[in-house]
């Protein structure tokens, strides 16, 4: 009982510190926006880091969805609905969630490690001593970059999963679903609302992952063990946060 209390206390203390850190981060955002080149560079870094894994995973998930969907739909003679099945699953759910999980593993861990190493090698203290706020120079641009890159990556993921390399390839080219039916079903079935909700999810996930990654890196112990702990906790905490938030967001959106 005491142990649970201690864990809960620890968790709440960390959450409190992380929330304070988020406020400082948000206050530093305007100063980070004054350095657009730094921000663009970070968007390029986190985006490009994750691009290949997102593209390949998107294609494979689309293919698997099409295979499984085709088998089930063919029981009802409804294989012409394959397009909408793949599209809605991807846009509403798998796109944002899987992209965010991969993003946490690839870009989130790299962000935490990079900032943690900057802490360990005194680069952050060095900046402070040069009267440059590392929150504005290091943390905020990386946080913003994750926030901006996530929806872009999730969109790429969805396009890959639905399109010619994923669902379309398996459904139409391999299994022989009519291409006209595949696209027209998507065209009729996917609403602007679906896309908007998908974007909201990926924005929230992007902000969450980058927040956790930057916080973990910034507050890591300045040792090799500290940096490794920061990367691991970034991936674990981000993944849990993504899945929990996905449930909460879906529940809210469902009620709309």
């Amino acid at each position: 009982m005491n142990a649970i209390g201690a864990i809960l206390g620890d968790f709440l203390a960390t959450l409190g510190r992380a929330t304070l850190f988020l406020l400082q981060l948000l206050l530093a955002v305007p100063r980070a926006l004054l350095r657009p080149r730094l921000l663009l560079r970070q968007i390029y870094m986190v985006g490009q880091l994750s691009l290949i894994i997102i593209v390949i995973s998107g294609a494979f998930i689309g293919m698997v969805l099409a295979l499984e969907g085709y088998r089930t739909l063919s029981n009802f003679g409804a294989t012409s609905s394959l397009g909408i099945l793949v599209a809605l699953s991807v846009i509403r759910e798998l796109g944002p969630v899987v992209t965010a999980l991969l993003f946490a593993g690839r870009a989130g861990s790299a962000l935490a490690a990079e900032i943690g190493l900057m802490r360990a090698t005194d680069q952050l203290s060095g900046m402070e001593m040069m009267a440059v706020d590392p929150l504005a120079y290091v943390a905020a641009p990386r946080f913003l970059a994750g926030f901006i890159a996530m929806p872009l990556l999730a969109s790429i993921f969805s396009v890959m999963a639905i399109g010619a390399a994923g669902g379309y390839f398996v459904g139409v080219i391999w299994l022989g679903v009519d291409p006209g039916a595949y696209w027209s079903q998507i065209h009729q079935g996917v609403e602007v609302l679906d896309i908007r909700q998908s974007l909201i999810k990926s924005l929230v996930f992007g902000a969450t992952v980058s927040w956790i990654a930057v916080f973990q890196g910034y507050h890591s112990a300045p040792t090799s063990e500290g940096v490794s702990r920061a990367t691991t906790s970034t991936v674990v905490m981000s993944s849990l946060a993504i899945l929990a938030l996905d449930f909460v967001l879906t529940a809210f959106m469902f009620s709309q």
Binding site: M118, T121, D122, Q123, M129
Partner: peptide, 12 residues
């Protein structure tokens, strides 16, 4: 003030 850290703390 200028400060020299032990390992230089150059931005890598």
């Amino acid at each position: 003030m200028g400060m020299l850290f032990q390992n230089g703390a150059l931005l890598t």
